[in-house]
Design a protein around this nucleic acid. Sequence first.
DNA 1: CAATGTGAATACGTTCACAGCC
DNA 2: GGCTGTGAACGTATTCACATTG
Lengths: 220, 220
Amino acid sequence: MKPPRIPSIVINRLAVYARNLELLDQEDIEVISSARLADLCGINPAQVRKDLAYFGQFGVRGIGYYVKELLFETRKIFGLDREWRLGLVGVGNLGWALVRHAQLMDHKYTFVAAFDKKKRRIGTKIESVEVAPLDDMNRLVKETGVEIGVIAMKPEFAQGVANKLVSAGVCGILNYAPAHIQCPAHIFVENIDFSLSLDILRYRLTSAKSKGHRIRSKPL
Amino acid sequence: MKPPRIPSIVINRLAVYARNLELLDQEDIEVISSARLADLCGINPAQVRKDLAYFGQFGVRGIGYYVKELLFETRKIFGLDREWRLGLVGVGNLGWALVRHAQLMDHKYTFVAAFDKKKRRIGTKIESVEVAPLDDMNRLVKETGVEIGVIAMKPEFAQGVANKLVSAGVCGILNYAPAHIQCPAHIFVENIDFSLSLDILRYRLTSAKSKGHRIRSKPL
DNA sequence: CAATGTGAATACGTTCACAGCC
DNA sequence: GGCTGTGAACGTATTCACATTG
């Protein structure tokens, strides 16, 4: 009942397990051992078992884990058993990509509001949602019950938008703008800068002058 | 000269420092202490100093780090002092978003080739690059000198495209499709699934029933 | 004297190895 | 027999604390 302080690295890996379990389930695989799941994720089997042990005893000794059951449990852990209402701020290419991506995964993301700064985008529709100006944020967030704000704008507007979202009452923010935003401590924020991965790849390529030491493809 | 096995977590943080240094430089801030930089990144000052110490002694005792100088060093570490030639596979919303994002950062990314599966996209232009069919990949990757392949397609095509890229001769792959791809050990791969961040945010919101323990906004 | 650079101390995460169970 | 669940052993990362230096 009382959460025993789960390290965030465990949560990250759990998300990867969950993704792989979805794929396994789609392939109608019913049972998976920690060894095989670990292999898919590129890590150690004992780690998989330990990580899962934070949340309960989901396996069967001598058998492994039932995919459907474990998937159900992980989905519950991530709150995938209930719908979350998202509001998108910034309806450019990235915004569209996010909405499309969300559709692919059946993770019960529902975009219930969309905002943009550019006049020509106001009133257009993204899926079934009409794009509103930023000034309507306060009202619309409340009316439509947005819980998570997704920022997909240029970095210079990110902090301002974040402040607006907070005062409109969202409880979490996902920031895809390449600028680190600061929020009050009670708001949950994830900053994602997806050019960081490219930088990291560049580092690895650059430093690969030293003889080809094996580097695994890494999840997350 | 011989690299002393730098932990990849250090590289990740270094990328974050670099990003923040860029922002500081844009604000014409000339000197920064490890304490202040650490604060911007949400970590411990000693960590910043230790991380930087892997690469050299860039600071001045009693003063701090000169932003421009440190930025120069980090850019060099990440191979940002030379141009890298990228090939984009998948010219949908995500593909466009990536190209736009790359333009924003002056990180010397150059998209020199673009490919798509959809017939109606072939021959269109993304920036100044003409979109080619997947079958031309082998030839065009060689002709244009693509070093890094960027996959921005549906997950079911990701592995196939990765194989094609590898046999065409790229040395690194950045995979934005939500499927974990496997490549030969000599190819550097970064898999980025950007809905994982949303899952992690959901977890934090879900588990926040336990009283509002402070969670910092996290970079990367 | 303020802030770096770094050994030493600590905390944390990973892996091992095996008891327990199906 | 095979695979989980887990304490104990190990290794790595983080933080402390201070000597060092411009």
